[in-house]
Amino acid sequence: MNVLGSLAVASLLAGLGFVGGQAAGLRPVFGTLIPYAAFVTFLLGVSYRILVWMRSPVPFRIPTTCGQQKSLPWIKSSRLENPSSTLGVIGRMALEIGLFRSLFRDTRVELREGPRLAYGEARLLWLGALLFHWSLLFVVLRHLRFFLEPVPAVVNVLASVDSFFQVGAPGLYVTDVVLTGALGYLLLRRLVNPQVRYISLFADYFALFLLLGIAVSGILMRYVVRIDTVAAKQLALGLVTFSPVLPEKVGPLFFVHLFLLSVLAAYFPFSKLMHMGGVFLSPTRNLANTSRMRRHINPWNSPVKVHTYEEWEDEFRDKIKAAGLPLEKE
């Protein structure tokens, strides 16, 4: 139900973009108004989420410790798995964000004959996620050629590296293939594996379908149903220079691409996609384990009124003495 529902919504949105690109009256809405609104929503939404997270208190050190913590000098400590310094935390975060280190530790559990519970390594999710995220970064950076004029040399270098294999014209981008393949795997994983399918929600599929829709429409525009690239750039430049133009020649497929992207950008701050910002703010990753080196006192501990035994004895000294009970202090 989650699968079909999210597929239906994503298809509906793609269809809406298609219609918006064809109807002359709707083109300003889909080509100018919605992209601007989506971008503003993205910026404000992401900032809001980060600022809310920034204000949440983190009084104690709660890093996940996956190695020996720093203690006595002759005990070898694990600097990345259990960092005790800022440098260690930076290293750990860099590996987490760049290489998805914690995902690499994923395991698989199976019930074998016997019955016997068997554990094994599971690296496919890590590989798929890594390929997807890095390809997406490359694709986004390559798209700068539509938004910058003159195009910086870096973007040209990226494009020429990406089309290294020189297949056809326009040259086939490796990241296009890898991105779609990885997205396909991430979707299939949710559909094929019963356990993962059971815990998959509407939002999980929806993000995948949106991204797949954007990727497939982009690939179609480049390799199959070709569009006028120059007109597409004119539209993009018009948007970013605040002098929007709507070239007649840009095909409806372009509007599918643009509208799905707008939906993704507007949906981003309210969805699980916020892990882009959230990964930097995970207290289980970005805190050094100094719990035993330093005493961390909760800064908003309210003062507790205590009544010690000495005070109590002073209060009732006469009565205790009269009853003949022993006293700590005579």
Binding site: F147, L148, E149, L235, L237, V240, T241
Partner: peptide, 12 residues
């Protein structure tokens, strides 16, 4: 892209 194109004086 917003400030890059302002700096470069780009138009559509």
């Amino acid at each position: 892209p917003l400030w890059f194109n302002v700096a470069a004086g780009t138009t559509s």
